[in-house]
């Protein structure tokens, strides 16, 4: 790999930065789309469910690569303006992965027990309050592991942007290969780069998952010290004997 000069390394490292940016922006857009479309697909109005369902089917059924090329090259022909490649890529990736994510949101929301919603009705909450205070906080821990998968898919999916000439890792690799004429070392390094990024994402999402589960009283509490102190105590309290009439009667 000695033939790869510092300048060429610089191209690859800049590519890493672009890939990270693409991932973050697309994930942000994708999350917004996932929640909006996912919740719309559980809406009580049929027309809302139909429109959001159509969105999901449309984006699930089209190739992200072709869509990206289409957004960048075909849309300008009809509309007369062109997005910069970076934003065309973010738009395509966000809308596509958001469609996959909407299925995650829909499933997790549907999995919240009906009794939780009924308790919300009994306490007089409006539908929006039930969603915000009861349903989403309980659905969220169920969403994190599949969102982690999607996020990694998205990270690797960003490689598609090299066709638009966005200087991500993959595009950098093509440049470096063209400059050195050597594929094996360049693409080996690039594989490792993607793996490291994906691994870091997974670790971060594990943390998110643990916090989310603690938020609904599953798994350890988010503050390790407090958990160590009160854990065994609480468990003892929860034993049936503590539930005798006690002070109640």
């Amino acid at each position: 790999m000695s033939e790869i000069s510092p300048g060429l390394w610089g191209i690859l490292l800049h590519g890493v930065w672009v890939t990270v940016q693409l991932t973050v922006f697309s994930a942000a857009l994708g999350a917004a789309v996932a929640f909006a479309v996912g919740l719309a697909r559980t809406h009580r109005l049929r027309i809302v469910r139909i429109v959001s369902g159509a969105y999901f089917e449309l984006f699930r059924g089209t190739s992200a690569l072709v869509l990206m090329i289409w957004v960048f090259f075909v849309v300008p022909l009809t509309l007369g303006w062109q997005l910069v490649p970076m934003w065309a890529a973010v738009l395509t990736l966000g809308c596509t992965y958001g469609a996959y994510g909407s299925e995650v949101v829909r499933g997790a929301v549907a999995a919240v027990p009906q009794g939780q919603r009924e308790a919300g009705v009994a306490l007089g909450f409006t539908p929006a309050q039930r969603l915000r205070k009861i349903v989403l906080p309980q659905a969220w821990p169920e969403m994190v592991p599949p969102f982690n998968n999607l996020l990694i898919e998205l990270l690797k999916g960003t490689a598609l942007v090299s066709v638009l000439g966005v200087g991500d890792i993959t595009f950098g690799a093509q440049l470096v290969r063209n400059a050195t004429g050597r594929s094996a070392p360049v693409y080996s390094v690039v594989l490792v780069m993607y793996f490291v990024l994906a691994f870091l994402l997974t670790r971060a999402m594990r943390l998110v998952e643990r916090r989310a589960k603690a938020g609904v009283g599953r798994g350890p509490s988010p503050e390790p010290a407090a958990a160590a102190q009160s854990g065994p105590d609480r468990r003892r309290d929860a034993a049936p004997s503590a539930s005798a009439p006690g002070g109640a009667s």
Binding site: A119, A122, I134, G217
Partner: peptide, 25 residues
């Protein structure tokens, strides 16, 4: 209403389960 399956909100503490509706509603 009190339900057969309790239906407490697992995402809230005991106190919050009781205070949330009086505050919000």
């Amino acid at each position: 209403m009190v339900f057969q399956q309790f239906n407490l909100f697992p995402n809230m503490t005991v106190l919050r389960n009781i205070t949330e509706a009086p505050v919000t509603v």
